[in-house]
Amino acid sequence: MTLGVGESVLVILLIAAVTFLTRAFPFLVFPSGKPVPRTVKYLGEVLPSAVIGMLVVYCLKGVTPLTWPYGIPEILAVAAVIGLHVWKRNNLISICGGTAFYMVLVQVFFCK
C-alpha cells in the first residue's frame, strides 16, 4: 500500500460519490411525480439501442485493424455470436458459444 488507510478510504469514498452522482443526475433533474418533457421521454426510448451500439464499439476498441491479427478473431467471433443468436435466439448459447470460439481463436490460431 502506497497510501495510508485513511487516505485510501477517502479516495475510494470520493470515487464512489462522483460515480453515484453521474448515475443519479437524471433522477435529480427529473424527480418522480413531475411530468417529464417529451424530448426526454423520446431520448429515453431511443437511447438504449444507441448506447448498446456504442458499448459494442467500446468493447472492440482495442482491435488493431492495421496490424496483426487485423481484428480477424473479433470479426469471426462477433459474426458467430450474431449467427448463433439469429439461429437459436438463446442468449446463453450465443454468448457461451461465441466466447469459447473466440478463446480458441486467440489461444490457438492467432497467438501473439
Binding site: V18, T19, T22, R23, A24, F25, P26, F27, F30, S32, V36, V40, L43, G44, E45, L47, P48, V51, M54
Partner: peptide, 13 residues
Amino acid sequence: NIRHVFYGLSMLR
C-alpha cells in the same frame, strides 16, 4: 463515468 449521466433517462419510468 460521464456516459452514465444519460443512462438514467431510460430508467426514469
